[in-house]
Amino acid sequence: MSKFDFPTSILSRPVYGTLEPRPGAAHLFIADAHGAEAILDVAGVDTSLMAKAHVIYLPNGEGYGDALRALKPAKYYEGPSYPASVQRIRKAFADAKMGLQVYLAGTEGLIGQAQNEAMQAGIPHTAIQTEHRGSTARRMQCVHCKGITENVETDPFVCAHCGLNLFVRDHYSRRLAAYQGVCIDAEDPGNVPAAKGIYE
């Protein structure tokens, strides 16, 4: 899948790079769906990475598992969902030693949440490599009820918790690993424009 070119935006909006091999005592890769492609690419650039790598992969219906396994990472885990894997991710960060390199790839929701776990373990966000691949759906926080709606692809959208119609802001919180959703019809209740793709 080709990489999506996000339009230039405000300064709180995350920007993603391209994973590159860095010298390290150990390498932790966390990816979902098409994020596997970024791992395959960087493993091709430096074939020695995988001998010291721990790969945590959430396929979410994409069939990259065999290709990743074929890289023979030192540790490989495939999880059915982020919530199912989060304890394992936390353990990986808790066990981390000085010299660990962190690579995150895939959707913004996965990157944001895994980055948040890394930060809570004391790794500065600027030391973490990220690469966006696959779906451009967003993880949104409703500013009103605080509920998180995953995989939002349209603007506006309906909050999965309180049911308000929210518009999609580019304002992003690393602490919450979410963009902000704000009621779109507060000043004219019921006047909700038709939903369209966030980048349309």
Partner: peptide, 22 residues
């Protein structure tokens, strides 16, 4: 503006939505 949302942000990030000034 929301403290709960902006908590932990740096100076440029919490001011990100302000137009023109950047």
């Amino acid at each position: 503006w929301s403290l709960d949302f902006d908590l932990g942000m740096n100076f440029f990030e919490w001011h990100a939505p302000v137009p023109l000034a950047h």
